[in-house]
Amino acid sequence: MYLSELTSRLADGFLVTLQLLGWSMLIATVLGTALAAMRVSPIPPLRALGVSYVNVFRNTPLVVLFLITVVGLPELNLLTGSFFWRAVTALSMYTAAFVCEVVRSGINTVQVGQAEAARSVGLTFTQTLRHVVLPQAFRNVIPPLASVYIALTKNTSVASAFGILDLTYQLSDLIEDFPGSLYWNFISIAACYILIVAVISGAAALFERRVGVSR
């Protein structure tokens, strides 16, 4: 009875956590890369926008962002839809600031000569970034990017306090219904998170061996 309950609830929670993670990771990476491009662009207002974004979102506690998207914005008739997308919004806005800084540091490792050569053969700024600089930049920042994703994995647990039935929510539920099996409740939930984090670390190690820059 306990075992079947445990596995079915773990499966439910695991799926929700994965969905949260997947969408937030995707949006944060796209948004973060765009922000990094803005921060290195030759247009001053874009640079200022990028800097402000990072300053605001990197320095705001995640829970405050959740309060804004889950409690604040709906009062203004924004984001009134599902709780899932409110959580994804908070998580990806927050993580994008970190992705931006990681990607920007990667861009800075690519020697200036590369960009200059690209410009001299007639590529525009966007083309230079897309075809020459960013591919090399990403190869240089695989370890810190993996750290950002791992932090994101753990941060998804905050959503359990804001209407999402993720793994952490299932843990509270299990504690409530099976107070006699505390150890198993905690260990199995922890194992699920470890599994996700291990996959991210493993993938990062693989990419680093395959495409990482070795000097």
């Binding site: 889950v70 409690v71 709906p74 009062e75 009134t80 709780f83 359990s160 306090a161 804001f162 209407g163 999402i164 039935l165 929510y169 509270s172």
Partner: peptide, 18 residues
């Protein structure tokens, strides 16, 4: 199901229509 940490959070979400 929509879980929140406290009942007052739930009441807030009820009042804003979520």
């Amino acid at each position: 199901p929509v879980p929140f940490d406290t009942y007052s959070d739930c009441v807030t979400q009820l009042q804003n229509g979520s």
